[in-house]
Design a protein around this nucleic acid. Structure first.
Lengths: 172, 172
DNA sequence: GAAGATTGAAAAGTCAATCTTC
DNA sequence: GAAGATTGACTTTTCAATCTTC
C-alpha cells in the first residue's frame, strides 16, 4: 500500500485545461452538425469512412474498426441512418453472415452539404488558434499518446495497431 | 459561394489523430471509473468539484458552471447520485428557489477510493508519455484553443470566462 | 464452437417545456 | 417576468445476452 502518485500542481492544471478544451471542442462540433445536418459527430464519421472506400461500401466489422465503434454501437447507429435513408445494409455474396454497409446518394449528399461548415468550424476552433510550431507539437503529442490509449482500449497485443492511425475515427 | 477551405493533408492527419487520441483517452478513463467505482467520469468530476469547496457544498447553478454541465444535465446526474447516497440536495435558507448540492460521507469515501486508480491511469496514458517539453507544449495549445471553444459553447460575450480555466471540468 | 451481427434494457445526455420563487 | 431548478420525451451509448452462419 504505497502513497498514490498524485499529480503536481502543474500537471493538474494541464490536465484540467486539456479536459475542458477537448470536451468543449467535441461538443461544439457535435452541436453544429446536429443543427446543420441533423446527425451527431459520430455518425458523420461513419459516413466519411464509407465515402472513402470504393463504392462507399464496407464490411460492418471493418467499418466498426475504422471508426472505433463496438459492433453493437455500429448496429444501432446504422439502424438510425438506414431509417434516415443515408445508408443501406447488404448481405455479402461471399459469406452469408457478413454484411456490408453501403453509402446511399442521400448519405453522400448530406456529407457534401455538411462538410464545408464542419471543416470551417474545425479550422476556426483548432487550426486557426495554432501556429505552425504548435501544430507540429500537437502531432507529436498525439503520436506519443495514441499507442498507449489504443492499447488501453483492448486492442490485441499483436493486433492491427494502425487502423486508427491510418483510417482513424473521423475526417475533414 | 466560395470554395471551402479544406484541410491540408497534414492538417487532416493531425485532426484525425487528435480525435482518435482524445476519444480513446476519455473512454478509457470512463470505463475504468465505471468498473472500479461504478460512476462515469462526468460524475466523478461533479464529486471532485464538490470536494474542493467548504463543507462539500455548492449552489447548483455554480456547480453546473464549474463542471460545464447544463442545468438539466446536472439535475439528472444529481438525481442518480442522490439515489446512490453520494450526495444530498438542500434548499438554501437565503433564497427559497436556490439549492445546494452537498457531498455526503459515502461520496467522499468513494472519491478517496477511486482517486488513486484514476490518477494512476491519467499518468499512465498521458503524462508518462510526454517529456517536459511536450507537457509545456500541451499547456500552450490548450491555452490557445480554450478561449475559442469556450466562446463557441455559448458563454456570454462579457461573461465569466475563467470558470473553466480555474475551477474547470475535472480533477485528480 | 467461434466469428459476425443483432437485440433489449439501462444509463447518460440533449432539448424544449414547465414549475417555483423572487 | 426572469432566475433557478425540474420534468419528460427522445437520442446515443454501453453491456450482456442472443441469433445466425460458417
Amino acid at each position: 500500500m504505497t502513497e498514490p502518485d498524485w499529480l503536481s500542481a502543474d500537471e493538474q492544471q494541464t490536465w484540467r485545461q486539456f479536459l475542458a478544451t477537448t470536451q468543449l471542442l467535441l461538443s461544439a462540433l457535435d452541436r453544429e452538425l446536429m443543427r446543420d445536418a441533423g446527425i451527431p459527430h459520430s455518425h458523420y464519421g461513419v459516413l466519411v469512412a464509407l465515402s472513402e472506400h470504393p463504392d462507399g461500401r464496407r464490411r460492418l466489422s471493418d467499418l466498426a474498426g475504422l471508426v472505433d465503434f463496438s459492433q453493437s454501437r455500429l448496429t444501432h447507429a446504422l439502424t438510425r441512418m438506414e431509417a434516415a435513408g443515408l445508408v443501406r445494409r447488404e448481405s455479402r455474396p461471399s459469406s452469408g453472415r457478413e454484411k456490408d454497409a453501403v453509402l446511399l446518394p442521400a448519405g453522400r449528399a448530406l456529407l457534401e452539404r455538411a462538410a464545408p461548415g464542419h471543416v470551417a468550424l474545425v479550422r476556426q476552433l483548432l487550426f486557426d488558434r495554432l501556429d505552425r510550431d504548435q501544430q507540429a507539437q500537437l502531432r507529436g503529442i498525439c503520436a506519443a499518446v495514441l499507442p498507449a490509449v489504443v492499447q488501453a482500449s483492448g486492442a490485441e497485443p499483436g493486433g492491427f495497431p494502425q487502423t486508427l492511425v491510418a483510417g482513424c475515427a473521423d475526417a475533414s
